[in-house]
């Protein structure tokens, strides 16, 4: 995942990368609340904050993934109608977990990313069902599992795949060497293309 603005090396590139991530964090919630309705299919809307957090965590590594999860979780709890700390508790774990999986499977970019998004989408739904216990009857839960959980995870995964494909098309990935892989473990993110 060596997007141009994620490469280290120059101070300018680092500043640009951080500014872009900052801007993305600022607009992800307004985008989700105002624009993503346009993409609704059967009442399902891609979970842009979750997908954005997972991408950020995989690219930037565990500490940043954790901190990003805290920031996004706080914002979600603050602006949603939940009135709880559900997202503040859950999102840092998702960010950290995604980044750690990203480190362990650094050479399997696309399959790893899609698997992480699908798993996180299912885990988020499951955690929500446990936290809020929204079902009066078991049959309601089964109906929801069949009608919503799978399709939503598929939609989230497909959306993340499209975003990833756009990223690849925009900045084709560079091959990583074993040294890069070691650097990734040290630095928490990919250092850049092999020269």
């Amino acid at each position: 995942m060596s997007l141009a603005w994620s490469r280290g090396g120059t101070r300018q590139a680092d500043v640009v990368r951080r500014l872009l991530w900052g801007a993305a964090f600022m607009v992800v919630l307004p985008l989700q609340t105002s624009v993503m309705d346009v993409m609704a299919i059967g009442g399902m809307i891609p979970n842009l904050p979750l997908i954005g957090l997972l991408l950020f965590a995989v690219i930037e590594g565990p500490p940043a993934g954790f901190a990003g999860g805290v920031a996004l979780g706080l914002a979600l709890d603050f602006f949603s109608a939940s009135g709880t700390v559900f997202y503040t508790v859950l999102y840092p774990g998702l960010g950290l977990g995604a980044a750690l999986i990203g480190q362990l499977t650094a050479n399997l970019r696309a399959p790893m990313l899609l698997t992480v998004v699908a798993s996180a989408s299912v885990m988020l739904s499951g955690a929500h069902a446990i936290w809020f216990q929204p079902f009066d009857r078991a049959e309601d839960m089964m109906r929801w599992l069949a009608a919503s959980l799978g399709p939503q995870a598929l939609y989230d995964t497909a959306f993340a795949g499209v975003l990833y494909a756009v990223g690849i098309w925009w900045h084709p990935p560079a091959r990583q060497s074993l040294k890069d892989h070691d650097d990734f473990f040290t630095a928490g993110r990919f250092p850049g293309s092999v020269r």
Binding site: A64, F66, P191, G192
Partner: peptide, 14 residues
Amino acid sequence: MAQSVSGYRRVWLL
């Protein structure tokens, strides 16, 4: 190679 998140910063972030 420049590291974007140094060891101390990682600890501070966490």
